[in-house]
Design a protein around this nucleic acid. Structure first.
Lengths: 256, 256
DNA sequence: GGTAACCTATGTCGTGCGACATAGCGGCCA
DNA sequence: TGGCCGCTATGTCGCACGACATAGGTTACC
């Protein structure tokens, strides 16, 4: 678990990545694109953008000119209550499309913040109409990605509504582990964990203290191991039993 | 609050409603359609279907041949845990598109059940490609509706994660009240309430007993009145204060 | 090199909510 | 007409979790 500033130092990086050389697209989680689609997306993406850890990518209520897909790094979506309590709605990893609710509705109803340095492909919203009118397959992909977002929110709802603290934490760990593994970000059974315990608490609707104690219990029982900015899954079987984890993200998905 | 079998007896009804005569479309919540779109939707809709209260509309895992929009009646989406605990993910009202995750992903990851007798317009999924390829505006509308679903899930997440029992119930009541009002289903400040307290509990991640007690407290304090299958909002101001309710569903939305 | 900010850790205590029990009421069906 | 089922209601008790307090370790910044 993150202990403090480090963050995968992929900072500087070169200029812009051409979509045909996209390091994500080659991964087997993503469905292959036709050349026609690929060159459209290349036109669709106008610029690349870097956001440092801890900075806001899009603020609540903002009508961003862009939607983004994450090229590298972690981010999270959240909403705040007037008294500063915060609910983390979801974690966004490379390949995830974020900010879609902004252009399509009237401004984004949540904020998005970078957990690590984040590299983004930016798509201007005014080019969306062109996508719809010339690339029906990509339109379908947008619907697909929006549906996936809702499905992840649904699973999260099930956790918050009906699972105990231990179950929630076990579930979250497996969830992140499998998403990382699919993206090739895990080495063995250990995966990067840039979230602090405060983030975990805010994602799972728990207090920080209780999160800490529950997490420690999982460690003591040797179900997981917590490193500096990483977690190792020691007993996946038992974690599944505890949490009722349900693998659902198995299919290949579109990458825009 | 619903006490038992009654259910708005709009049962029998005639045959099929032609989209151009759709009783929903004329309501000001829905954005107007061009004739071209309208006649496409008329072709898209192949059949109408009635489901009685308490029956399942689509079951978890099912790959339904259709997606539906609700013409009349109430339904709810839910997920179950192996031990029979249930989490209600959301309430679907007339004009809502349901079952979209089924065709687009690989089978629906939640179930949908009718709360009252429900009348559905059914769209076969194999005609979706035609929608994408000939009606970009409708493709955009699908994205819009999917984003709205995610936004509602996000608000629900905030409730479950960070609000107290009282706040959750106050929020839910205002939420349903405003959605009903927008659809012209409320008379004055009273709106139909087909959910039982068990449904409310399962939606808000509470126990049935605690839901009952909390609800009673709102009634005792004269913030609401509970009738047989209806709720009257007595003090919206105070309910807003309690819950931190945030009106977000103000804009006109597409109806497919 | 002192101090502040951030994160993790652990103890004690209090409480919001869940679990269990019981009751009443109305509808349904044999 | 009697019994069962679904829903609401309310009391008692216990527990999982939150609130508060304290501490130590690490990084950043004067």
């Amino acid at each position: 678990m993150k202990r403090r500033s480090e963050g995968q130092k992929r900072g500087a990086a070169a200029g812009t990545v051409h979509c045909r050389n996209c390091p994500l697209r080659v991964k087997p989680v993503f469905r292959p694109f036709e050349g026609r689609e690929l060159s459209f997306v290349e036109w669709f993406k106008t610029v690349e953008k870097t956001v440092e850890a801890g900075r806001t990518i899009i603020a609540e209520g903002e009508k961003s000119r862009f939607i983004f897909t994450i090229l590298s790094g972690w981010a999270f979506r959240y909403k705040s209550l007037p008294d500063d309590r915060r609910q983390i709605l979801g974690i966004a990893l490379p390949g995830d499309l974020i900010g879609m609710q902004g252009p399509v509705m009237d401004g984004l109803q949540h904020s998005i913040e970078a957990l690590t340095p984040v590299r983004l492909c930016a798509f201007p919203r005014e080019r969306l109409w062109k996508l719809y009118s010339t690339h029906p397959a990509l339109a379908h992909d947008l619907v697909w990605l929006a549906s996936r977002g809702e499905r992840m929110a649904d699973e999260h709802l099930l956790s918050l509504g009906r699972r105990s603290a231990t179950q929630r934490i076990a579930y979250l760990i497996l969830h992140l582990y499998h998403r990382c593994a699919a993206l090739d970000l895990a080495t063995g059974t250990t995966f990067p964990m840039p979230l602090t315990q405060a983030h975990v608490a805010d994602a799972l609707g728990l207090s920080l203290v209780h999160t800490n104690k529950t997490l420690r219990r999982l460690v003591r029982h040797r179900l997981i191991e917590v490193g500096d900015s990483s977690i190792t899954v020691l007993d996946e079987e038992k974690l599944r039993d505890i949490s009722g984890y349900d693998e659902t993200d198995g299919v290949r998905r579109p990458l825009i």
